[in-house]
Design a protein around this nucleic acid. Structure first.
Lengths: 122, 122
DNA sequence: GGCAAGCATAAGCAAGACGTGATATAAGTC
DNA sequence: GACTTATATCACGTCTTGCTTATGCTTGCC
């Protein structure tokens, strides 16, 4: 299952948000998701399985509990996919840095905005 | 349809990549997707519809052609959702900046890495 | 007007995703 | 060993998605 498919489900996104705060036993996840989404324990368990198998989460058994933790690797991949698009909303810091390095006076920021298609890319 | 669901389909991701290079007529998209994914014109047209209706793309009619263009807004939303997770793989630039501002010597970068759950978040 | 090109829409179908209730498994408690 | 708790898995129904083929609607051109 592709990373974006995994993130397609709101319940799974919520689980990742929970895990971002630190390790969490499956039971706690079940409780929160149950309250917020009204879904059952098996449903949550299956989501956790998806997160496990797609590399978003790791598990650690402690007694009868299963402590889930976030693995950021696939999210990082998503972040990287997003990278070429970021130029559409992020001021071009590289160009800015270059200008600063050259000691130029700051120009009007007209060309530090969303680029048009005939600008260089990559 | 939620942004992440839209991005869940590889064909749609590809279309967004194409549109990132600039405006493109539907026919060209059909040709590329046809080659790369082996799908038909209606299939592509339906993907374009999804992208339109979810705000990822805009259209402009020119004669009999439909020029599609990227609208970065929803991608930006995705980027923002990703933000709280970024601390897991991005060195903490804010802390780094603080240290530099204070004129401290650069410490070993042991604590500039992935934070543990008992550190402050947000 | 007639025709072709460019694209969108409709209808139908197959596959997969997500939910449920029931049940299995394994560890802790008495 | 019996029972409870914590979690996973099974079997199954349903809804959604994404594809296909067929067709409709504009626009440009002769």
């Amino acid at each position: 299952m592709h990373a974006f498919d995994v993130l397609g489900d709101p319940a799974r996104r919520r689980i990742l948000e929970l895990l971002a705060c630190g390790e969490m036993p499956a039971g706690d996840v079940v409780r929160v998701l149950g309250e917020e989404f009204g879904i059952s324990q098996p449903a949550v368990s299956q989501h956790l399985k998806v997160l496990r198998e797609s590399g978003f989460a790791g598990v650690r058994a402690v007694g009868t509990r299963r402590l889930y933790s976030l693995d950021p690797t696939p999210l990082r991949g998503v972040d990287e996919w997003l990278d070429p698009f970021r130029r559409f909303w992020v001021p071009r810091l590289d160009a800015l840095a270059t200008e600063i390095a050259r000691g130029k006076k700051t120009r009007r920021d007209g060309d530090a905005q969303v680029p048009t298609e005939d600008e260089e890319q990559s």
